[in-house]
Amino acid sequence: MVNVTILNQFEEDQLDEIKDVYESVGWMKHSIEVISIIFQRSDVVSISVYDGRIVGVGRALTDGVFNATIYDVVVHRDYQRRGIASYIMRDLLEQLKGISCIQLISTTGNEAFYRKHGLKNLKTGMARYLNPSLAEEYLV
């Protein structure tokens, strides 16, 4: 593991670095405008900084009592496999520690990572995707 700092406040001057994180893993639809909207509307954020650079992010929406959903736990391609995503997950889960139900949808192949952090498969989870390729990948 590397020594990272976790920030829990989103600032507009972070946009370029956050965009770089998303693009490094092929998430090209996350424009500056989209990132600004999704982070401003997120209730909980976890921004990982290593050596003065943003190298990972995670965010969540919550009602503050019963439910929360974690989104976009992403680490820059050049900084993966160093434990940074685990720092982000631990921080998000700590910020959400009083919430009764925390959910997320894993990207394909990363399910074991989230199990390592205490999440389990849902029996009754459901979703709808407008994008046909995502629907094919994630829906049963």
Rank of each mutant, 00 (worst) to 15 (best):
6 I>P: 02
91 D>Q: 10
30 H>S: 08
118 G>N: 10
107 T>L: 15
99 I>S: 01
53 R>M: 14
123 K>T: 15
123 K>S: 15
137 E>L: 14
51 D>K: 14
8 N>C: 06
97 K>A: 10
27 W>M: 12
16 D>A: 13
50 Y>V: 00
91 D>P: 01
123 K>H: 15
20 D>N: 14
104 L>A: 04
12 E>M: 03
110 N>V: 01
82 R>F: 14
93 L>P: 01
76 H>W: 05
40 Q>M: 07
90 R>T: 12
108 T>L: 14
106 S>W: 04
85 A>H: 05
69 T>N: 11
102 I>M: 05
99 I>P: 00
100 S>H: 07
122 L>T: 14
34 V>H: 06
63 D>P: 01
63 D>A: 02
3 N>S: 12
64 G>E: 07
94 E>G: 08
103 Q>K: 13
111 E>P: 04
79 Y>D: 05
121 N>G: 11
33 E>T: 08
79 Y>P: 03
105 I>D: 06
28 M>C: 08
79 Y>G: 02
48 S>I: 05
62 T>V: 06
90 R>D: 13
45 V>K: 07
12 E>W: 04
61 L>W: 09
85 A>F: 00
128 R>Q: 11
130 L>V: 10
136 E>R: 13
104 L>D: 04
120 K>Y: 04
77 R>Q: 14
57 V>R: 09
49 V>Y: 02
9 Q>W: 00
132 P>R: 09
138 Y>R: 09
93 L>F: 05
94 E>H: 12
29 K>Q: 13
106 S>R: 01
55 V>W: 07
14 Q>G: 00
82 R>I: 02
70 I>T: 04
112 A>G: 08
88 I>S: 07
123 K>I: 14
36 S>E: 12
23 E>V: 09
135 A>I: 02
90 R>P: 04
28 M>E: 14
98 G>Y: 00
35 I>T: 02
47 I>T: 03
44 V>F: 06
130 L>Q: 11
135 A>R: 12
132 P>K: 11
137 E>K: 15
69 T>R: 11
96 L>T: 05
100 S>M: 07
20 D>Y: 10
43 D>S: 09
111 E>M: 07
